[in-house]
Computed example of a mutant assay.
Amino acid sequence: MTETVTRLDRAAPFYVAGHHGLAGGAVWRHLGASGFTNLVGRASSELDLRERDDVFAFFDEVRPRYVVMAAARVGGILANSTRPVDFLSDNVRIQVNVLDAAHTYDVDRLLLLGSSCIYPKFAEQPIKESSLLTGALEPTNDAYAIAKIAGVMHVQAMRRQHARRWISAMPTNLYGPGDNFEPDSSHVLAALIRRFDDAVRDGASTVTNWGSGAPRREFLHVDDLASAVLHLLEAYDDASPINIGTGRDLTIRELSDLVAEVAGFSGTVEWDDTQPDGTPRKLLDVSRLESLGWRPVVELRPGVEQAYNWYAEHRDSARR
């Protein structure tokens, strides 16, 4: 692992792809708070990253020096398992277009955000970066995982063939302000927030969750992700992807209890075990990131409280 200590130029053009999304929005906020004065972003309505000519024209116009690749089609178990073609095709096209344009227009530092789902379903826990490509993937999101693996390989190929100082990072499950609360495409924590909030507001006495509640998951607040992204851009230069997480997990049942308590739900919680659980456990080994001097600061309970309060305040405008 190569460690560098290179402070990024705060005045250089910095493109955050996906700056209206959960991860990209947090990165955008953190970069602004860290003194970057030339941030560039485009909404998907302004620039469709699946359209190669449009992406190249954008890079020709902006000439970014730095890029964070946080744009992606994302979703939970239901969306991934029912629309695998969308998740594979869209994400591969987005990544290929942005990375090829970044090379053509000589982007100095680029960080590609992947996902912990790239690792094998039964990888040894906690999951080390070296587990990549050592086993079968979780079937409910294998198409998305393959797309993100392609992105990691693309970054590595750019390093080998063109000596690009680009990196890829694999965050664990993310949550926080700006999350997607749509019932058909949200991830588990956002889905629980909406479900329990709806139950409280409707006066429901019962909430039904998918699966058994037994799988264990790790959760990282997006503000912590954003600080890790900048830290890595200034302190990491290696072909291997690097994990971003907390190193701690809990069961989905425990998470459900926490969200119910935060939302003020006092009814009965039932579990529909006819629905898929997904990977039994997905805890990342974050020792390499910790060795670079970074650790998360947002604890889970206050983070969930903040995410719930944000949703309650933005219920009418949130993605729901």
Rank of each mutant, 00 (worst) to 15 (best):
N180T: 00
Q306G: 12
F122Q: 09
S44M: 02
F14M: 12
I77T: 05
V16Q: 06
A102Y: 05
L225F: 02
L113H: 09
G41A: 14
A12I: 11
S116A: 09
P171C: 14
L174K: 02
S227C: 04
A101F: 13
R160N: 12
E254Q: 09
E254D: 09
Y308N: 08
F265R: 02
G278C: 03
G18L: 06
A23W: 10
R320F: 02
F56I: 02
L112Q: 11
G211C: 01
T6E: 14
T268K: 09
G267K: 00
R295N: 13
S34G: 04
H154T: 10
R195H: 07
Y119M: 00
I244K: 10
G35S: 05
R319S: 08
D272Y: 06
R295G: 13
A71M: 09
R288H: 08
I146F: 04
H221S: 02
R109H: 11
M153L: 13
F58C: 14
T82K: 06
P171Y: 14
H20K: 13
A70P: 08
V40E: 11
V85F: 14
G25V: 07
P183F: 10
D100S: 14
F36V: 12
A199E: 04
L49F: 09
E182T: 10
E261I: 10
V96W: 07
A199F: 07
A214N: 04
A263S: 02
I242D: 08
A157I: 15
L174D: 05
F59H: 05
I118M: 04
A307P: 07
H187Y: 01
P120Y: 15
L292T: 01
H20P: 11
S240G: 13
L31K: 05
L39T: 09
H221A: 03
H30D: 15
S266E: 12
L47T: 10
P171R: 13
R93G: 03
A43M: 08
G203E: 09
V5H: 02
A226G: 15
Y105C: 06
Y119C: 04
P84L: 08
Y308Q: 07
R159N: 12
A163I: 01
F58T: 15
G35H: 01
D316G: 06
V286T: 15
M153G: 11
R319V: 05
L39C: 12
L225V: 05
R42A: 15
R301D: 14
H154L: 08
P120R: 06
L8A: 10
C117A: 15
A312M: 11
S115C: 04
R194K: 15
A239I: 05
E218Y: 08
M158C: 15
D197Y: 03
L112S: 07
P64S: 14
V107A: 13
N180K: 06
T206N: 08
D237N: 14
A101E: 15
